[in-house]
Write a protein that binds this DNA or RNA. Structure first.
Length: 902
RNA sequence: GCCGAGGUGGCGGAAUUGGCAGACGCGCAGGACUCAAAAUCCUGUAAUCUUUAUAGGUUGUGCGGGUUCAAGUCCCGCCCUCGGCACCA
């Protein structure tokens, strides 16, 4: 018998597929399209690792599955090749990054092919190819012309090791995302992209996407929308020779607490300090304080949260709501980059202000108190019927009881019915409602229309008591940040927080404002190996874009790649390149010497795949229309607030420019968990727990590698690579090979085999559809166990191979051809299952007595409830448990279970 | 602190969303083949108790309560692990 020679088989078919263009996507095909995407790799000198395998195999399996289901599938690949390692290699060895990149790409390509990846290589792109980055630059100029790229001097994140500026998104826990060095702040002239202009669109767009919740939430949090008000405080000064009036503007989400604002704080960078220099009597101290905060690193600020600050003596702010004078402080707990860089401090209702006020012995004035009392209602159907009636008769109103909150618990089965009821009730009042879990609905409001005390049920009463907040036990020395009733606030007393917010804002002529946490994207890097920013500085004309026909602005050769560390890129040293003509006036001009960040090329690569060789456009309209949006995008969670956010921004911009036809780039995003070493730790050389995919391919074959990777665990879960585990799938593949070599098992198959096959078709099809690859593998193993020693038909053999084909493309292709097929199994038609074959005529149902399993009975498919119950009660074994007892109740769940209650 | 995901045998993990917990695989134990070993094949494998055995009982999905004929799954209150954000007003 032939041995399963996977090395030979895999090599052979990889060549055949390439020769036949098996995975080339046809632009003109009449079939419905599917665009499957993986994050294209960075071709590093180390080659691709296990981390790449996870999404790539998933995408590959899914692509093959869709292709067999009749779709025209595009599964492209390319190289995200700008970046630091190539440059650092150049610094060390003096070899130009483009040379080492080409070499690394060749290696990585070998790897991907040896893994049996069904990529469409005809669409390969490379971000460092001038024909590619011409269009990266072109899109940048579009952004520039739309006013979304601007130059500004500011404090930015600076990586001292990589010697370049970083975007906010690239700072992880105060460290450089790439190298881990502690990030510093540095004042630099930088190019920014105005991603904040798209904050709302990025947020709204999320709602239209069928993405997993956790990704959406992470992007939402990153964008960080909050609603509040802008409020102006006039400044009064001691020195009367002042003609100009000054004011401080703050952003607050709690204008309802304005009466409780007892001081103000500005960030150390706030302009007011400079502006009112002459008015500040303790200027020297203030300047000293500002200087010390500037010397603090990000890390120190995070570490030491003890509040510090300094009063700005000589000036006061006037609280617009009551004209009281309050002191102004400078303190670094207020950030210059958020809101207006100044706050009104309400120590009674904000933890940070509270802490600061205690330290500096400032007034703490409470203006919000909790609801008088919280009533707990356990609502059942009859109570609700009663309410409904009273509402319709207008008897259910709310004048008598001010300042109450109620908490309502609802019986499970009423939730669906009652949710709209409460929503309706709340719509004309300042009520606050939240649902905690499915069966609980809480309504807080300033008034209660009815007081119904907790009724009969003792347990409910007990629970209700726990939730009551007795008024006299409230500790007024603590901060209260919850919802409640406004007091100590003049004419606004008695209002709910929500209501007071906008009434008070209106009263002081404040402005409703929406604030985002998101910052503009620092887009320039002081490094060599990136796309040159295609702009020219002209003394006369200012900043002039390079004319389109002169793109790309190619990277010049340099002798020294070292970053200068001065905030200039190494390009600045090449005078022949820097000095050029101004395209506008023809006078002398200087090229922008900063380069684009790594994220530039990857922000639009998925568009280029549709039309990679186009020299006139970044991609042809027709082809964009044909292929977009990406149907499924496989990738890691680590890019959620980096690449995934950036490319959505670019895409939404291109959509607004009418250059793409879909508002969003990726219809679905499937995240994956990381693969850890066998010890449960992150794979790393220093730990010595690195599993190398290539050695596994040599030892067990690509098919075993792929299948084991899928079998490790759920796609989205973090999993550990267990060295021994691969033996299981390796044995499985050997057994399949053996099964197909034997001719003895061919023949007429029985109905259990057929049933098992169809059950597996169902299971495998459904599970691939929802990316549950680990159970796909187990389903296939179960099938083999069931048919291994039985007679099977040729059709079953073919079906089995087809089900396996997406997972193990080489082995199945080999056996498929051994069966005499001429064309590829990967372009064959996916099997469908016959529901009548899946359902058995006879099956077992479990019989329980008082919830305990006591036996099983075999019943026919179409048995009635009565018949089943009889069978169960007459069963000898069951009788021993029911003997001498009365049967109270029998529960019958068709096809599953009978429970006899005695 | 806030947000998100999770906690099931010795291990990785299943469980159609309330219906036989532990599928499938690893490992382990016993057996077959072998002079022997490896490979392969067969059998067993949650814990615990009763029994010579067949068999049967009890407990069991992080902890404590609850709802239900029935809970890994739903509700309430905790604990722990991982991921993200964090002085964002």
């Amino acid at each position: 018998m032939k041995k399963y020679d996977f090395i030979k088989i895999e090599k052979h078919w990889q060549k055949e597929w390439e020769k036949n263009g098996t995975y080339v996507a046809d632009n003109k095909s009449k079939k419905e399209k599917k665009y499957i995407l993986i994050e294209f790799p960075y071709p590093s000198g180390e080659g691709l690792h296990m981390g790449h395998l996870r999404p790539y195999v998933a995408g590959d399996v899914y692509s093959r599955f869709l292709r067999m289901n009749g779709y025209e599938v595009m599964y492209p690949i390319g190289w995200d090749a700008f970046g630091l390692p190539a440059e650092n290699f150049a610094i060390k060895k003096g070899i130009h990054p483009s040379i080492s990149t080409v070499k690394n790409i060749t290696n990585a390509k070998e790897q991907l092919k040896s893994w049996g990846m069904g990529f469409d290589w005809s669409r390969e792109v490379n971000t460092t190819d001038p024909y590619y980055y011409k269009w990266t630059q072109w899109i940048f100029l579009k952004l520039f012309k739309a006013g979304l790229a601007y130059e500004a001097k500011g404090m930015i994140n600076w990586c001292p090791k990589d010697k370049t500026g970083l975007a906010n998104e690239e700072v992880v826990n105060g460290c450089c995302e790439r190298c881990g060095a502690t990030v510093e702040k540095k004042e630099l002239r930088q190019w920014y992209l105005k991603i904040t202009a798209y904050a709302e669109k990025l947020l709204q767009g999320l709602k239209t996407l069928a993405w997993e919740n956790k990704i959406k939430v992470q992007q939402e949090n990153w964008i960080g929308r909050s609603e509040g008000a802008l409020i102006r405080f006039q400044i009064s000064m001691n020195q009367s020779n002042q003609h100009e009036s000054a004011f401080l503007e703050v952003f607050t989400t709690r204008p309802d607490t304005l009466f409780g604002a007892t001081y103000m704080v500005v960030a150390p960078e706030h302009e007011i300090i400079l502006k009112l220099k002459s008015q500040i009597s303790n200027l020297k101290e203030v300047e000293e304080y500002v200087a010390t905060t500037k010397n603090k690193s990000e890390e120190e600020r995070i570490e030491n949260k003890e509040k510090t600050g300094m009063e700005l003596k000589g000036i006061k702010a006037i609280n617009p709501v009551n004209n009281e004078e309050i002191p102004i402080f400078v303190a670094d707990y207020v950030l210059s980059g958020y809101g207006t860089g100044a706050i009104m401090a309400v120590p009674a209702h904000d933890e940070r202000d509270f802490e600061f006020a205690k330290k500096f012995k400032l007034e703490i004035k409470s203006v919000i108190r909790p609801f008088k009392e919280t009533r707990v209602l356990f609502v059942n159907r009859s109570l609700i019927e009663n309410w409904k009636e009273r509402i319709s008769e207008k008897k259910l109103l709310y004048k008598d009881f001010e300042g109450w909150g109620i908490e309502i618990f609802i019986e499970d089965d009423l939730v669906k019915e009652l949710t709209p009821f409460f929503q309706d009730l709340m719509k004309d009042g300042p009520y606050y409602c939240s649902t905690r879990g499915a069966t609980k609905l809480i309504i807080y409001r300033d008034k209660v229309f009815d007081v119904i005390l907790v009724d009969g049920d003792e347990k409910a009463k007990e629970y209700g008591k726990k939730l009551l907040i007795p008024k006299n036990e409230l500790d007024w020395s603590l901060v209260y940040t919850e919802e409640g009733i406004v007091f100590n606030s003049g004419q606004f007393d008695g209002l709910s927080v929500e209501e007071a917010k906008w009434k008070i804002t209106e009263f002081v002529k404040g402005k409703k404002q929406i604030q985002y946490r998101l910052r503009d994207w620092v887009f320039s890097r002081q490094r060599y190996w990136g796309e040159p920013i295609p702009l020219i500085h002209c003394e006369k004309c200012g900043i002039v874009p390079v004319p389109e026909e002169e793109l790309p602005v190619t990277l010049p050769e340099v002798k020294k790649y070292e970053p200068t560390g001065t905030g200039e890129s190494p390009l600045a040293a090449i005078e022949s390149w820097v000095n050029t003509k101004c395209p506008k006036c023809g006078g002398p001009g200087k090229r922008e010497t900063n380069t684009m960040p790594q994220w530039a090329g990857s922000s639009w690569y998925y568009l280029r795949y549709t039309d990679p060789k186009n020299e006139k456009e970044f991609a042809g309209k027709e082809l964009l229309k044909r292929w977009l949006p990406v149907d499924v995008y496989f990738g890691g969670m680590e890019h959620t607030t980096l690449h995934l956010l950036y490319s959505r921004f670019w895409h939404e911009f291109l959509y607004d420019e009418k250059l793409v036809q879909t508002p969003e780039p990726y219809a679905r995003r499937i995240p994956h968990g990381i693969i850890l070493g066998a010890d449960g730790e992150k794979m790393s050389k220093s730990r010595g727990n690195v599993a190398n995919p290539d050695t596994i391919v040599k030892e067990f074959g690509a098919d075993a590698l792929r299948m084991y990777e899928l079998f490790l665990g759920p796609h989205e879960a973090t999993v550990s690579w267990n060295e021994r585990g691969i033996l299981g799938v390796s044995r499985f593949l050997e057994r399949i090979y053996k099964l197909f070599q034997s001719k003895e098992n061919e023949g007429e198959e029985d109905s259990t085999v057929r049933g098992a096959v169809h059950e597996t078709i169902k299971k495998v099809s459904e599970d691939i559809e929802v990316f549950k690859f680990n159970t796909v593998v187990s389903a296939l193993m179960i099938l083999l166990n069931q048919i291994e020693n039985k007679k099977i038909s040729r059709e079953t053999k073919e079906t089995f191979l087809k089900l396996l084909a997406p997972l193990t493309p080489h082995l199945t292709e080999e056996l498929w051809h051994e069966l005499g097929n001429e064309s590829s199994i990967h372009t064959s038609v996916w099997p469908t299952f016959d529901a009548t074959l899946v359902e058995k005529d006879l099956f077992m149902i479990v019989v329980q007595v008082n919830g305990k399993v006591r036996g099983q009975i075999e019943v026919a498919r179409d048995i009635t409830k009565e018949e089943a119950e009889h069978l169960a009660l007459d069963n000898e074994k069951i009788k021993t448990y029911t003997e001498g007892k009365t049967v109270k109740k029998v529960i019958y769940v068709p096809k599953k279970i009978i429970n006899i209650v005695v």
